[in-house]
């Protein structure tokens, strides 16, 4: 049976996360840190993980359903810091290798990022000299480099030689790094897939949070914004666009919850559900970005409004860990092969 209702504990988790982010992660934090850079901004964003997120790091060891709930909330506010990559991706890889740093990453005293992709953006283990699209490099202590085998090599982030990749979303900085050589620890193919699935679903949940913020913000804007003596939300030409965006959003949210349950239960639907979740969540967040911007009119096209921050994260997130097209190709393969 499928049950989408949250347990009391899950509801508490969501509510606690929501009030934490409402209180501690005001919009100004991101704006100051990454866009209208103020001297204190970057430091405040940088210490956000240590001050507010580290006690949540252990979610990476628990049910994916819980982690996904938390990621939705953090996605809605675009909480700074490496929680996503550290807990949902690096941690299961470290666990798979029985690595001595795993416990410290789980208790939040250490953070880690993951280097998998090659220059072509394939998220598969390999022996490429350079790893690309490594998130949050400058905010973490360790880099988990995935190599062929699969095996992992864990290196000190401080020792890594990397160059930033200038991209749309500054709040999730990406780097290319020279890939560490040296002896790795073997992990199983299954463990690698499991970590990728967890990271993919957690990222999808974040995208659902991004879409939810766009939906909530846009709906309240079109209720308040008056033109022609009516709220613009009363114009059907706009309503139908908003309805379509909300349909994408609702099915994405459901697909992500379903995928998290499938992974937790190691269900037969697991593989397809993860691809469905990522494709739907990336698509929905992108769709809401465009629709939300359009519904805001001029203000949506500026830095006066925070919508652009979500648009950046939506498009950036869609292209991490395989874009919607790639996941749809995998689904087609499941259909035919």
């Amino acid at each position: 049976m499928v049950d989408f209702a949250l347990t009391d504990e899950q509801e508490l988790l969501r509510d606690t996360a929501r009030s934490l982010f409402t209180k501690e992660c005001p919009p100004a934090l991101l704006r100051d840190a990454f866009y209208d850079v103020t001297p204190e901004g970057p430091a405040a964003a940088r210490s956000f993980y240590a001050t507010h997120l580290r006690e949540w790091a252990a979610l990476g060891d628990g049910p994916l359903v819980d982690l996904a709930l938390f990621m939705q909330e953090s996605g809605a506010v675009l909480a700074p810091g490496p929680l996503w990559v550290s807990s949902s991706w690096a941690l299961p890889l470290l666990r798979a290798a029985d690595h001595p740093d795993a416990d410290a990453v789980a208790d939040g005293s250490l953070t880690a990022t993951v280097a998998v992709a090659d220059a072509a953006g394939r998220w598969e283990p390999g022996d490429h000299d350079e790893s690309w699209f490594v998130p949050h490099l400058e905010e973490v202590d360790r880099v988990v480099v995935v190599r062929s085998g699969p095996s992992i090599v864990v290196v000190d982030a401080a020792e890594v030689v990397g160059a930033p990749i200038e991209a749309l979303d500054r709040t999730r900085p990406l780097h290319r790094i020279a890939t560490a050589s040296g002896p790795g620890t073997a992990i199983t193919e299954v463990a690698f897939r499991d970590a990728t699935d967890r990271a993919t679903v957690a990222l999808s949940a974040e995208l659902v949070g991004v879409g939810r913020w766009l939906q909530d913000t846009t709906l309240s804007y079109v209720n308040e914004r008056v033109q022609f003596a009516k709220p613009v939300g009363s114009f059907q030409g706009l309503q139908w666009k908003l309805v379509d965006a909300s349909l994408h959003q609702e099915r994405a949210a459901a697909a992500v919850a379903y995928a998290a349950m499938c992974v937790d239960a190691d269900d037969a639907d697991r593989a397809s559900s993860v691809h469905v979740a990522k494709a739907a969540a990336g698509g929905a967040a992108r769709h809401w970005s465009r629709t939300g911007l359009q519904a805001h009119g001029g203000i949506g096209y500026t830095w006066e409004h925070d919508l652009h921050l979500r648009l950046r994260r939506a498009y950036g997130g869609d292209h991490l860990l395989g874009d919607a097209d790639w996941h749809r190709d995998q689904l087609a393969a499941l259909l035919f092969d």
Partner: peptide
């Protein structure tokens, strides 16, 4: 024009949102 340019981003896969003109 929006769809053409967005397709141009999507065709670049993982580089879709990379803005560095050399990459």
């Amino acid at each position: 024009r929006q769809r053409l340019n967005e397709f141009g981003m999507d065709l670049q896969g993982a580089y879709a949102t990379v803005t560095d003109p050399t990459l």
